[in-house]
Design a protein around this nucleic acid. Structure first.
Length: 278
DNA sequence: GGCCTTGTTTTTTA
DNA sequence: ATAAAAAACAAGGC
C-alpha cells in the first residue's frame, strides 16, 4: 500500500541511511525479488556506491556509481530499514545489502510482491510501469488543462481512472477514496462527465492531499514504516478509507463500502451521489 | 482453506 | 484498432 507519500518518505529515509555508502556484500534470501539474474545482480553492485535515491511515482531509483540504477517497487508491503551487521535476519527480510559503515540495509516484504531491477542509468524509463507513467501529482507537473483533456476522453469510472498511473502518478486506493470524498465525487462517476469545476477541485485536492500526507510522513495502514521503522501519522487524518460504517464528518450519513473495478471503495452516499449528467 | 488485501500486468470483451 | 473491464498474479494472514 505504499502510495506516493509513503514512497517519498522511504526515499528521504534512505537518503539519510544509505546515500554515500558503499555496498560491500549482498545476501539474497528470496531470489524472485530480483528481476535480474541474482548472481549478476550481486556482482554488478558489490563495490559500488549508492550516490543517491530518486523517486518517480511509486518507484524508487537507487543511483549507483558505474552508471547503474536499481528500480525498486515496494508493491504492498515492501520496506527498507538498516541494522547493525550481524543482527538477526527476520524471516521476511529477502535482500540484505552490507554497507561499508557496519550496517546492513535490509529489504523486508511480508507478501514478497516487491521487485528490484538493476538497469543501466538512462534506460530506467523503458521498464514496466515507468514506460507509461503520468505526471507527478504536483502543482508544477499536473496541469489542469492536461487533466481536463484526458478526463474528457475517458468513459472509465473516475476511481479506476485515478488509479491508472499513466493518467497521474502516485495515487493508490487510500488517497483515491480520500480525494473523491473531499471533492464530493462518486467513485463510479464516468470521467468524461466531470464538470470543469469538479475537475479543477479534484486536481487541487489530489495535489494538496499528497503534499499533506507526505508532510505527515505517510499513512500507516497494516504495517507501513519508514526507513527508520517508524509509522507515519497520516492515518489519523483519513476520513474515507477504513471508515466504513462511521458517520461522514460532513453530513453524518453512514459511510458505505462497495467494490469498484474490483477494489474496495469507501464513500459517503449522501455527499457523493452518482449523478448522470453530460 | 477460502477469501481478503493492492499495484501492476495480461487477457478478454465491447 | 482501440479503450475499458475483467482477470490474473504475486503470497501470507486470518
Amino acid at each position: 500500500m505504499p502510495e506516493m507519500p509513503e514512497v517519498e518518505t522511504v526515499r528521504r529515509g534512505l537518503m539519510k541511511i544509505a546515500a554515500g555508502r558503499k555496498i560491500v556484500g549482498i545476501d539474497v534470501h528470496y531470489g524472485k525479488t530480483i528481476e535480474n539474474d541474482v548472481e549478476e545482480f550481486r556482482q554488478a553492485l558489490i563495490g559500488q556506491t549508492i550516490k543517491r535515491i530518486d523517486r518517480r511515482g511509486k518507484y524508487l531509483l537507487f543511483r549507483f556509481t558505474n552508471d547503474l540504477t536499481m528500480i525498486s517497487h515496494l508493491r504492498m508491503e515492501g520496506k527498507y530499514f538498516n541494522q547493525k551487521t550481524g543482527s538477526p535476519i527476520d524471516k521476511h527480510t529477502h535482500v540484505v545489502f552490507h554497507l561499508d559503515d557496519g550496517t546492513d540495509l535490509c529489504y523486508h516484504d511480508t507478501r514478497k510482491f516487491g521487485r528490484m531491477h538493476l538497469v543501466k542509468t538512462g534506460t530506467e524509463m523503458e521498464y514496466g510501469g515507468l514506460r507509461t507513467i503520468g505526471p507527478e501529482p504536483t502543482e508544477r507537473d499536473f496541469k489542469l488543462d492536461y487533466f481536463e483533456r484526458i478526463l474528457g476522453k475517458s468513459r472509465s469510472k473516475i476511481k479506476p481512472f485515478l488509479l491508472n498511473q499513466s493518467h497521474v502518478a502516485g495515487l493508490g486506493n487510500i488517497y483515491c477514496d480520500e480525494v473523491l470524498w473531499q471533492t464530493k465525487i462518486n467513485p463510479e462517476q464516468p470521467a468524461n462527465t466531470l464538470t470543469h469545476k469538479q475537475a479543477a477541485a479534484l486536481r487541487k485536492n489530489i495535489i494538496h492531499e499528497i503534499a499533506v500526507a507526505t508532510k505527515y510522513k505517510g499513512t500507516t495502514v497494516h504495517t507501513f514504516t519508514n526507513a527508520f521503522g517508524n509509522a507515519g501519522a497520516f492515518q489519523e487524518k483519513l476520513v474515507a478509507y477504513g471508515h466504513v460504517g462511521d458517520r461522514c464528518p460532513r453530513c453524518g450519513t453512514k459511510m458505505v463500502k462497495i467494490k469498484v473495478a474490483e477494489r474496495g471503495t469507501t464513500f459517503c452516499p449522501h455527499c457523493q451521489p452518482l449523478v448522470e449528467k453530460k
